[in-house]
Amino acid sequence: MSVAARTLIALMLVAPLALAQDARLSARLDKPTLIAVNAIVDSARVAKLPTAPLVDKALEGAAKGSDGQNIIVAVRQLSMQMGSAKRVLGSSATPDEIKAAATALAAGVSERDLARLRSASGKRPMTMPLAVLTDLIVRDVPIATATSLVVQLARSGVKDPELALFQRNVRADIDRGADPSVAATTRARGLVLRSSGSGNKPTE
């Protein structure tokens, strides 16, 4: 086989990989960072993890002017968290659920609590409950309290719009000076009562 033929075959084999890489990364990352990020993204692809969040994480780092080493660490950490999330949530988890679960893990939620929430949610999507759980933790509701409340809400069949309203109400209470834990517990209790009771729509 001639050298030209071998080169052509090699190019045909490599071309799909090159096309699979995000052009935005090439435009915004320096070469060493690009190579490392692409390697992490390729590994995630092989592990059947969503790759878009990894690309977004790298783009975020570039937009915020972070150095290459920080970007690589952040992307690798997110990849590991998504791997843990997928392991807990199972193969049926959607990319959004995996992404939201990885964010919750980063906030300090344990894999065991993640499994509890999965069990409490049944077959309903977990993206919104995970986003609300993460927000509660960021707003200084203790992790154990926040997890228990969201698991309880999920078990009560509270729907996503009601969860979003719950998050807004707790945030407003905290902004007005309420203790985060008390605000979250009080609002959750009211929501559970409404869900299990008359079925009236929640109000602000």
Binding site: E60, Q77, T103, A106, A107, A131, D135, I137, V138, R139
Partner: peptide, 8 residues
């Protein structure tokens, strides 16, 4: 809702 994205 906030996320704990303090990587950067």
């Amino acid at each position: 809702p906030r996320v704990t994205d303090y990587d950067y």
